[in-house]
């Protein structure tokens, strides 16, 4: 009854409903789009900085070293002549240069101001004021893993 008698009112109402419907549709799409995108996991994996894979055993012959990225910091992994691993912060404690491994004396050396550390990271000569931080090396299934704490 009401609808039949008030023609213009009804069409006006229908027009608003159509506008509202499209608006709601767009709005819901603008919500669903980011959410559905969010649900798809990205290809990149999470970078954990409590342990990092440094490579396989074959990349570490005795008397060799490699500098890897551990979070934001470089870490030097050394394999000594006797086959033992050690991993130390690769940032010299003097003026932040990157240190290197001297295979002949089995020491860690910073070229910038001739600073020496022993294989445990202790500063033994030159300007470095403090030792290099130590990391833990774990060999698991042929993989060399550097960790902040002992992996169990």
């Amino acid at each position: 009854m009401d609808k039949l008698t008030k023609g213009p009112e009804t069409s006006r109402r229908r027009f608003i409903d159509i506008l509202l419907g499209t608006g709601l549709f767009m709005w819901i799409s603008s919500l669903i789009y980011p959410i559905s995108k969010y649900l798809v996991p990205p290809k990149a994996a999470i970078l954990y900085v409590n342990n990092v894979e440094a490579g396989t055993m074959s990349e570490f012959p005795p008397s060799s070293s490699k500098i890897i990225r551990f979070g934001r910091k470089p870490v030097i992994i050394v394999r000594q002549r006797n086959g033992k691993f050690s991993a130390l912060s690769a940032t010299c404690t003097h003026l932040d240069c990157t240190v290197q491994f001297k295979a002949d004396t089995e020491q860690i050396w910073c070229a910038c101001h001739n600073g020496y550390y022993d294989i445990t990271g202790k500063n033994i000569s030159g300007p470095p004021p403090s030792p290099l931080a130590q990391y833990i090396v774990v060999v698991k299934d042929d993989k060399v893993i550097v960790a902040l704490e002992e992996l169990t």
């Binding site: 608003i16 767009m26 603008s30």
Partner: peptide, 19 residues
């Protein structure tokens, strides 16, 4: 774009309220 959609929706809802 999101704000545009919401603004549009706000205008329509306003008319709906009047109605």
């Amino acid at each position: 774009i999101f704000s545009l959609i919401i603004t549009y929706l706000i205008v329509v809802v306003y008319f709906k309220i009047k109605d």
